[in-house]
Measured scan of single mutants.
Amino acid sequence: NQESVVAAVLIPINTALTVGMMTTRVVSPTGIPAEDIPRLISMQVNQVVPMGTTLMPDMVKGYAP
């Protein structure tokens, strides 16, 4: 099972992602793959992401799977 990126904290809208904001977990449905965390650093979320929420591609500005 592939791990997906999950919010480790509440991430406010338009916040640039940092390593500490993200964790990984096997979830269903799957979100952004864990191995993409290095690509996500400094990208901004386009909505509020509650802690424990799986990051989906459409939540991150400029992210393309």
Results as ranks from 00 to 15, higher is better:
residue 1 N to G: 11
residue 1 N to A: 14
residue 1 N to W: 03
residue 1 N to Q: 15
residue 2 Q to L: 13
residue 2 Q to G: 15
residue 2 Q to Y: 07
residue 2 Q to F: 07
residue 2 Q to D: 13
residue 2 Q to T: 11
residue 3 E to C: 06
residue 3 E to T: 05
residue 3 E to F: 05
residue 3 E to P: 05
residue 4 S to A: 03
residue 4 S to V: 02
residue 4 S to K: 02
residue 4 S to D: 00
residue 4 S to E: 00
residue 4 S to I: 02
residue 4 S to M: 02
residue 5 V to P: 01
residue 5 V to T: 06
residue 6 V to D: 00
residue 6 V to W: 02
residue 6 V to F: 02
residue 6 V to S: 05
residue 6 V to H: 03
residue 6 V to Q: 05
residue 6 V to T: 06
residue 6 V to K: 02
residue 6 V to Y: 03
residue 7 A to D: 01
residue 7 A to S: 14
residue 7 A to Y: 02
residue 7 A to V: 03
residue 7 A to W: 02
residue 7 A to Q: 01
residue 8 A to L: 13
residue 8 A to R: 09
residue 8 A to G: 05
residue 8 A to Y: 09
residue 8 A to P: 01
residue 8 A to V: 08
residue 8 A to M: 08
residue 9 V to C: 03
residue 9 V to I: 08
residue 9 V to K: 14
residue 9 V to D: 04
residue 9 V to S: 13
residue 10 L to C: 06
residue 10 L to H: 09
residue 10 L to T: 13
residue 11 I to N: 00
residue 11 I to E: 00
residue 11 I to H: 00
residue 11 I to G: 00
residue 11 I to D: 00
residue 11 I to M: 06
residue 11 I to A: 00
residue 12 P to D: 11
residue 12 P to G: 10
residue 12 P to W: 09
residue 13 I to S: 05
residue 13 I to T: 06
residue 13 I to P: 12
residue 13 I to N: 10
residue 13 I to K: 14
residue 13 I to E: 12
residue 13 I to V: 13
residue 13 I to F: 10
residue 14 N to S: 14
residue 14 N to P: 01
residue 14 N to G: 09
residue 15 T to W: 08
residue 15 T to L: 10
residue 15 T to C: 03
residue 16 A to L: 08
residue 16 A to E: 09
residue 17 L to M: 14
residue 17 L to S: 00
residue 17 L to G: 00
residue 17 L to V: 03
residue 18 T to C: 05
residue 18 T to G: 04
residue 19 V to M: 15
residue 19 V to P: 11
residue 19 V to G: 11
residue 19 V to R: 09
residue 20 G to F: 11
residue 20 G to E: 13
residue 20 G to L: 11
residue 20 G to W: 13
residue 20 G to M: 11
residue 20 G to N: 14
residue 20 G to R: 09
residue 20 G to C: 06
residue 21 M to Q: 08
residue 21 M to V: 04
residue 21 M to H: 13
residue 21 M to T: 03
residue 22 M to C: 03
residue 22 M to W: 03
residue 22 M to P: 01
residue 22 M to F: 10
residue 22 M to T: 03
residue 23 T to K: 12
residue 23 T to M: 09
residue 23 T to R: 08
residue 23 T to P: 01
residue 24 T to D: 02
residue 24 T to M: 09
residue 24 T to R: 11
residue 24 T to N: 10
residue 24 T to H: 09
residue 24 T to E: 11
residue 25 R to K: 10
residue 25 R to V: 05
residue 25 R to I: 03
residue 25 R to M: 04
residue 25 R to L: 05
residue 26 V to F: 06
residue 26 V to G: 06
residue 26 V to A: 13
residue 26 V to M: 11
residue 27 V to R: 06
residue 27 V to P: 01
residue 27 V to L: 05
residue 27 V to D: 14
residue 27 V to F: 03
residue 27 V to M: 13
residue 28 S to Y: 12
residue 28 S to A: 07
residue 29 P to Q: 04
residue 29 P to E: 05
residue 29 P to C: 04
residue 29 P to T: 06
residue 30 T to E: 14
residue 30 T to F: 08
residue 30 T to C: 04
residue 30 T to V: 13
residue 31 G to D: 01
residue 31 G to C: 03
residue 31 G to F: 02
residue 31 G to S: 03
residue 31 G to V: 06
residue 32 I to A: 03
residue 32 I to T: 02
residue 32 I to Q: 00
residue 32 I to M: 03
residue 32 I to G: 00
residue 33 P to N: 15
residue 33 P to Y: 14
residue 33 P to L: 04
residue 33 P to M: 10
residue 33 P to S: 08
residue 34 A to K: 14
residue 34 A to R: 07
residue 34 A to M: 07
residue 34 A to I: 05
residue 34 A to Y: 05
residue 34 A to D: 11
residue 34 A to C: 04
residue 34 A to W: 04
residue 35 E to A: 06
residue 35 E to W: 07
residue 35 E to K: 05
residue 35 E to L: 11
residue 35 E to Y: 07
residue 36 D to T: 08
residue 36 D to I: 08
residue 36 D to N: 14
residue 36 D to G: 13
residue 36 D to P: 00
residue 36 D to W: 06
residue 36 D to Y: 09
residue 37 I to E: 03
residue 37 I to L: 06
residue 37 I to M: 08
residue 37 I to Y: 12
residue 37 I to V: 10
residue 38 P to R: 10
residue 38 P to C: 07
residue 38 P to E: 12
residue 39 R to K: 10
residue 39 R to C: 04
residue 39 R to G: 04
residue 39 R to P: 02
residue 40 L to M: 15
residue 40 L to W: 02
residue 40 L to C: 15
residue 40 L to R: 00
residue 40 L to F: 02
residue 41 I to F: 08
residue 42 S to R: 06
residue 42 S to K: 10
residue 42 S to W: 12
residue 43 M to A: 14
residue 43 M to N: 03
residue 43 M to V: 10
residue 43 M to P: 00
residue 43 M to S: 06
residue 43 M to F: 15
residue 43 M to K: 07
residue 44 Q to S: 11
residue 44 Q to R: 11
residue 44 Q to M: 11
residue 44 Q to I: 12
residue 44 Q to D: 04
residue 44 Q to G: 05
residue 44 Q to A: 15
residue 44 Q to P: 09
residue 45 V to G: 00
residue 45 V to S: 06
residue 45 V to Q: 01
residue 45 V to T: 13
residue 46 N to G: 08
residue 46 N to W: 09
residue 46 N to C: 05
residue 46 N to Y: 06
residue 46 N to D: 06
residue 46 N to R: 15
residue 47 Q to N: 11
residue 47 Q to W: 05
residue 47 Q to R: 13
residue 47 Q to T: 07
residue 48 V to K: 14
residue 48 V to I: 14
residue 49 V to W: 01
residue 49 V to Q: 01
residue 49 V to D: 01
residue 49 V to H: 01
residue 50 P to Y: 09
residue 51 M to C: 05
residue 51 M to Q: 12
residue 51 M to G: 09
residue 51 M to P: 11
residue 51 M to S: 08
residue 51 M to D: 09
residue 51 M to L: 04
residue 52 G to S: 13
residue 52 G to F: 09
residue 53 T to S: 07
residue 53 T to H: 08
residue 53 T to G: 05
residue 53 T to K: 11
residue 53 T to Y: 12
residue 53 T to F: 09
residue 53 T to R: 08
residue 54 T to S: 04
residue 54 T to Q: 04
residue 54 T to R: 04
residue 54 T to Y: 05
residue 55 L to R: 00
residue 55 L to Q: 00
residue 55 L to P: 00
residue 55 L to V: 14
residue 55 L to C: 02
residue 56 M to K: 09
residue 56 M to Y: 10
residue 56 M to I: 09
residue 56 M to E: 05
residue 57 P to C: 11
residue 57 P to R: 11
residue 57 P to G: 15
residue 57 P to A: 11
residue 57 P to W: 11
residue 57 P to K: 15
residue 57 P to F: 11
residue 58 D to K: 12
residue 58 D to C: 15
residue 58 D to H: 10
residue 58 D to W: 10
residue 58 D to L: 10
residue 58 D to V: 15
residue 59 M to R: 02
residue 59 M to D: 03
residue 59 M to G: 01
residue 59 M to E: 01
residue 59 M to W: 04
residue 61 K to G: 08
residue 61 K to L: 08
residue 61 K to T: 08
residue 61 K to V: 09
residue 61 K to W: 07
residue 61 K to N: 12
residue 62 G to N: 14
residue 62 G to Q: 09
residue 62 G to C: 07
residue 62 G to H: 09
residue 62 G to R: 05
residue 63 Y to M: 10
residue 63 Y to K: 04
residue 63 Y to I: 09
residue 63 Y to Q: 10
residue 63 Y to T: 03
residue 64 A to T: 11
residue 64 A to Y: 04
residue 64 A to G: 12
residue 64 A to Q: 07
residue 65 P to K: 03
residue 65 P to I: 09
residue 65 P to M: 05
residue 65 P to N: 09
residue 65 P to Q: 10
residue 65 P to Y: 02
